[in-house]
Amino acid sequence: MSETVRLDRVEEITLDRVRHVALLARLELGEEEAVRFSRELTGIMTHINKLGELDLEGVEPTSHAIPTANVFREDTARPGLSNDEGLANAPEKDEGCFKVPQII
């Protein structure tokens, strides 16, 4: 399970962390790129850390700016896209399916 990255604790996005995130995102990074991202991301995080200076005592965490709740749709099925439309952007397709590099 991932530890929560607390803004006020992040000092440096180390090379190890860059490589870890790259693996999770299935990105292949060269050594030079990794070094550059480590530097740039550390800069970005330092900038974002400014938010940690705010006094948020008594402010409830939220993921929304608008206080809305309980938005539902009714359970009615309706037609979606055709198979052709659904696969229109697929780089490769076969037998009505998305074709991807072999899994397993």
Partner: peptide
């Protein structure tokens, strides 16, 4: 009858990728 975030059918056994829409894709 329909998926959890969109109105596509949940019926089993339809031909591949015929119960899809921009949300579930």
């Amino acid at each position: 009858n329909s998926k959890v975030w969109c109105g596509c059918s949940t019926e089993f056994g339809a031909p591949p990728n015929t119960q899809v829409c921009p949300v579930c894709l």
